[in-house]
Design a protein around this nucleic acid. Structure first.
Length: 151
DNA sequence: GCCAACGTTGGC
DNA sequence: GCCAACGTTGGC
């Protein structure tokens, strides 16, 4: 059984439409240990709710993990590499591809107003950019998005 | 633009 | 190792 996640991006930085245009992308630049651990727990085929933070504030699509965690290419330059070498820390990235766009974006306000979703990590750990989602929550979001998941 | 939450840093 | 200061994120 696949696991479910929610990944956040500011539309300004990397929007859902960009992911669709690119076909797939490297989800890198995560600089938080907990988020990194979540990235590393992802398996190929896991589904990720794609959330636009800050501007939009809604889940707009579902992405699929197409490559499991590997060293973050953006951590290999400049200060990050020095830090990683000195502190023994390192960063990870995964590749994701668009799976399906939600027919209707699921707004943060809607999530907050839905009792079944009140416990989402998105709400409780609002500053984490990669958080786990339960199957129940995932299904509820997709349903609110009036979307059928492709096989 | 402000503020709350929270992770990180640095002085001791 | 504690804790205050600081920086970043993200909602409003």
């Amino acid at each position: 059984m696949p696991a479910f996640w929610l990944i956040k991006s500011e539309p300004f930085k990397y929007a859902w439409s960009q992911l669709v245009a690119d076909g797939k992308t490297c989800w890198d630049g995560v600089r938080n240990y907990e988020a990194r651990n979540n990235l590393r727990a992802m398996k190929t085929g896991d589904l990720c709710l794609f959330y636009h933070s800050n501007e939009g504030k809604a889940v707009v699509g579902v992405a699929r993990v197409v490559r499991e965690a590997y060293p973050d290419p953006t951590a290999s330059d400049a200060a990050d590499a020095v830090d990683a070498a000195e502190e023994g820390g390192d960063w990870s990235a995964v590749d994701v591809a668009p799976h399906v766009a939600l027919a209707v974006p699921v707004e943060l306000a809607t999530i907050k107003a839905t009792p079944a979703l009140a416990e989402m990590q998105l709400l409780r750990r609002s500053r984490l950019s990669v958080v786990p989602v339960t199957r129940r929550e995932f299904d509820a979001i997709v349903k609110l998005g009036k979307t059928k998941l492709p096989k």
